[in-house]
Amino acid sequence: MQFTLKIERWNPETEQGGLDEFTVEAPETATLLDVLDVVKDEVDGSVTYRKSCRMAVCGSCGMRIDGAAALACKTPMAPLAQEGRVPVISPMGNLPVIKDLVVDMDPFWAKFRAVKPWLEEDDQPPVKEWRVQQEELDRIMKEALCIQCGACVSECNSMQSDPEFLGPAALAKAAKFVGDVRDRDRKGRLELYNGPHGVWDCTRCYFCNERCPKGVDPRDAIAKIGAEIYSEGMLSDKAARHAQVFDVSTRATGYLLETALVPYTDPMKALDIKFAMQMARAGKVPNPLRPHRAKKLGEVRKLHKLLKTQEADARAQKRAGVSVDREEAGS
């Protein structure tokens, strides 16, 4: 079968780049990686990309196909050719390009190291192996599937705006350790991930979930850390207070209390009179003294209270379960 594709080139020695088009023959079952191999073997040996396992396990061959990051070894080419598409193959985003389709993964690994991706011990190490219940393993199984390919990072919208954002891959790994019952530094981790370029930088664009080739759903992992931070009453970050306004508003009125959102999230922003006047002129500042109230509000208030109790019970049960395991492990 004939395949045509365009490859974004970059030569760091000459600092020249551009799009090169190639047409090659390959079997109908060929993946993008197979086609790249044919291009390199038969047409242009200087085309540069990473590869290793060829079976979506090593995470080496992340690149963009028409702007969407994916693993080359997991991308069949026939459907694209049948649609008449000539895909543009380019390097992943949010990482510096070294040559052609190869990006520098150093910033990726630096963020990985920054989340302390190892189990922390305390002064009472277990004398034999930890016993982890299946249910406890299941809670972090999705995050454990990550192969560190960088596809999620490539399209992270927040990272494009704040390159220091820890990002979806590192935070998915972080969520695994927050949820790991063997770890002894949960509080320390939460403080670390609650920092200025931590979980609250996530803009919920869901590109990471969309791109992940292994079903890790990094955005959901980030939300799990957010929930843990919130459950500890850690409200130092503006974003946590922003969430609290929604939480409390639904109990108070059933709706979002829009007029409380700005002053409670960030009191300094409430002093931005120019912005407030613009909003008021457009009729976008509701009367704070007469908030909109949902009907049947009693149901929601009872639900809010009931769930608070159930959430506290679930946390207590989880802690109790862990301590029993620990005693057994140390006995």
Binding site: R204, A223, G226, A227, Y230, A240, H242, A243, Q244, V245, F246, D247, S249, T250, G254, Y255, L256, A294, K295, K296, L297, E299, V300, L307, E311
Partner: peptide, 14 residues
């Protein structure tokens, strides 16, 4: 008697 869906905020926090 409908209420707020909780937006991304309640979804994440609780």
């Amino acid at each position: 008697g409908f209420t707020c869906c909780g937006a991304g905020d309640v979804h994440e926090a609780r």
